[in-house]
């Protein structure tokens, strides 16, 4: 049984201008110890789908799914109180902006120990020891002093390490990292990613890594899931995705990639992700797709089989990318 299983997750926001479907039938499966990367341009619903799972969306969001289970537990009808016992303990999340993700009014120590106190039955002294241990684990020097520091005294990289320490405090089975390095300097980015990889390997937890950076995907993940305009358009193991992308969107992302990606952002493809008001008929990618024909513009594409990387496309690319683009 997979650790996390999501089938047909849909999130709709009620906005002043009417309903807006930010996530549209997304599937995801994560096994114990898996590393899954989710990539896609801004606005493709990556964060929203993960927040939906954590139960962190505002009340304007309507969440539906055929299946949404974590560790054998159905997340869909889990009461708020029950869910709070899961999140922060077995399922933790870190965010894009480490500097603003820590509460400026409380010390690092307070914020880490608070997570421990919420979920574990530890004495005060044990919590202190565990907090020191955690800071040490995420590579923060001089933990005793750092525990007393306020967030504004930390750099971005330091803050993200503290966030990671906090997320790991109760030994989660799944860590969701939502663009954990986007806001950081390039050199720090690599350090944080290495740290996450190491921690994942050492603890055996599962990791969902949301990112814009194909280079990060190649180095860190085992499987990749590509999302576009709220839909999952392709899913493959990393190696085969880079070798033979089946969805034209994935292919476009990869072909636009410069030699060995060190770019921070995804390469640009002409056009933009459709938003609330310019959702096309048929395939959502059709307006930007080089291969689109009338069928694509009228009929919703089917989801292909595993051999085609579950591509949501009428005409998935069968040949390896190198030949298709050359």
């Amino acid at each position: 049984m997979p650790l996390l299983e999501i089938r047909n997750l849909t999130v709709e926001f009620t906005t002043a201008a009417g309903p807006f479907r930010a996530v549209d039938g997304v599937d995801a499966t994560v096994d114990q110890g898996d590393v899954l990367a989710i990539v896609g341009e801004s606005g493709s619903g990556k964060s929203v789908s993960m927040l939906a799972m954590m139960g962190l969306l505002p009340w304007t969001a309507t969440i539906t799914a055929d299946r949404m289970s974590f560790d054998g537990r159905d997340l869909r009808n889990l009461g708020a109180r029950e869910r709070r016992k899961v999140i922060g303990r077995d399922m933790a999340m870190i965010f894009q902006e480490p500097m603003s993700s820590l509460n400026p009014c409380f010390t690092v120590g307070f914020q880490i120990k608070e997570a421990l106190r919420q979920h574990l039955d530890l004495s005060r002294a044990e919590r202190h020891t565990r907090a020191l241990e955690l800071l040490d684990l995420v590579g923060i020097p001089d933990p005793e002093t750092r525990l007393k520091a306020f967030p504004h005294q930390l750099s971005g990289g330091m803050s993200q390490r503290v966030m990671i320490a906090m997320a790991l405090s109760c030994n989660p089975r799944l860590l969701i990292a939502d663009e954990p390095t986007t806001a950081l300097d390039v050199t720090i980015q690599a350090q944080i990613l290495d740290l996450l990889s190491d921690l994942q390997r050492d603890t055996g937890m599962a990791l969902i890594l949301i990112t814009h950076d194909m280079g990060v995907v190649a180095e860190t993940a085992q499987r990749v899931q590509v999302q576009y305009a709220g839909q999952k358009v392709e899913e493959q193991p990393v190696r085969s995705l880079f070798q033979s992308p089946h969805h034209p969107y994935t292919a476009a992302l990869l072909s636009a990639l410069p030699e060995r990606a060190t770019e921070r952002r995804l390469p640009t493809i002409p056009g933009v992700v459709p938003g609330q008001f310019d959702r096309p008929q048929g395939c959502l990618f059709s307006p930007r797709c080089a291969f689109a024909d009338d069928t694509c513009r009228k009929v919703d594409p089917p989801v292909q089989g595993e051999d085609m990387g579950f591509a949501r496309c009428h005409y998935p690319i069968a040949t390896p990318a190198k030949e298709a683009t050359s």
Partner: peptide, 14 residues
């Protein structure tokens, strides 16, 4: 609407 409130909720706090 600040990020650290989301963090606090993500910890499972009431």
């Amino acid at each position: 609407s600040e990020d650290y409130i989301r963090t606090a909720r993500a910890k499972g706090l009431a």
